[in-house]
Design a protein around this nucleic acid. Structure first.
Lengths: 227, 227
DNA sequence: TAGATTGTTAATCGATTAACAATC
DNA sequence: TAGATTGTTAATCGATTAACAATC
């Protein structure tokens, strides 16, 4: 928490505005990010909310409403400048913040993520992979070194690491999260299925429940069969 | 589409009721599924909406409202019978429907999924993995055979396959989706990042955008830094 | 200036929560 | 019967959509 005296200045007010943005809007930002990348690839310079609405299959009204939560990114009578809008959204999403990540768990999922261009596209730098398997230690995946998990605390203390990607077995997730909580790492991208909310109130945890996604597909297949 | 004469009978009406369930409710069902499994593991026989609400961190009102979309699963003065409720939710989610899946792409992600107990827990049977790599063909992952992608159509024609899990490179996703659309497969669990909505209106596509999840974490790390 | 399109307010819609009668 | 807790209706809240004045 900051000194209350600062609570009145401009910067703080901008931050407050952002904090008031509803999670419904925030959850849509990554989608804007993806579509803007496509527009850039296509060489499109400007886009109106109406055209973007057709592409994204949401209302133009929602697009304008969403983008306005963070300030006026467009221009009346013109629309939105694609590269400018993209830059603003990147800023919001911390794409240019230079976050550094470690992957904990060098199994198939950890390796799949390590090879995925997703991190690079989103400005996240994967700096190390940790595993217990001595056979893996010393090798690399996508030029990222695999280190022994015993080295984790030393590594975290001597490097800037913003987030840990948990791809180890569920049974070890809680213990690992506790070890992470004792370092300067603040974010956990949690693929283990283990609930981590209780570990530390300061940790920011993003849970990926692939099973929930599979279930949604199942539900739809199932109701289709019932028709 | 069914004959309109049937639209009045009872079965159809139940189906209609289910179809009217909002997607907000449907998206919560997998979470109920997970928590009920935990309760069963703990040997809990009954649970009230109040207690479940404390565990799941949602209101008791919402739980009762959600479950009532599908009929009265509880009992006044008693609460919900855990195994009964679990059975009903499994039914809704098609866990007992015996769906069969193939994984297309035998890379790290495909292998990670093939080894994951998630499918088994949710009643989905992974029957085959397809890949272009001749070195992989003939081997198995978690007892699941890896077949050559050229065999795909023949396999689909001679086996019951309900869904395809796409874990191949984005560039090949569209073409593969088209091949899938020509078989009897109706569901695609799409990890490729490629939009597939345009391929075939009859396909049920569930997209997994891991990058969106990463971005959400990034956003929160970023706004934390701004505080 | 006229046309286009945003930013923003107001109206609508849907989802969540509260309350309580029904009932086990 | 008394106590507990659901099922369900009504009230509230929030999110989406529509409309239009501001302005490029």
């Amino acid at each position: 928490m900051k000194d209350k005296d600062f609570a009145i200045n401009n910067e703080e007010q901008i931050t407050l505005t952002r904090d008031n943005v509803s999670s419904a809007v925030i959850k849509r930002l990554p989608r804007y990010f993806r579509y803007l990348r496509i527009l850039i690839r296509e060489g499109k310079m400007r886009i109106s909310s109406a055209e973007l609405s057709r592409r994204m299959n949401i209302t133009a009204s929602q697009i304008r409403q969403d983008l306005n939560c963070f300030g006026g990114f467009g221009q009346q009578g013109y629309g939105y400048n694609v590269t400018y809008l993209y830059a603003r959204i990147c800023e919001l999403l911390g794409v240019s913040a230079g976050f550094q990540a470690v992957i904990i768990g060098g199994g198939n999922l950890g390796r799949a993520l390590a090879k995925n261009e997703m991190f690079e596209k989103r400005g996240v730098d994967v700096v190390a992979i940790f595993d217990v398997d001595e056979a893996l230690v010393g090798t690399t995946v996508n030029d990222i070194p695999i280190l022994h998990i015993d080295e984790f605390e030393r590594y975290a203390a001597t490097h800037t690491v913003d987030m840990a990607v948990l791809t180890l077995p569920k049974a070890q997730a809680l213990e690992m999260a506790q070890r992470i909580a004792e370092t300067d790492i603040v974010g956990i991208w949690n693929f283990t299925g283990q609930e981590l909310d209780s570990v530390d109130g300061n940790l920011i945890v993003e849970n990926v429940h692939l099973g929930d996604s599979l279930m949604t597909l199942n539900y739809r297949l199932n109701s289709r069969n019932k028709e």
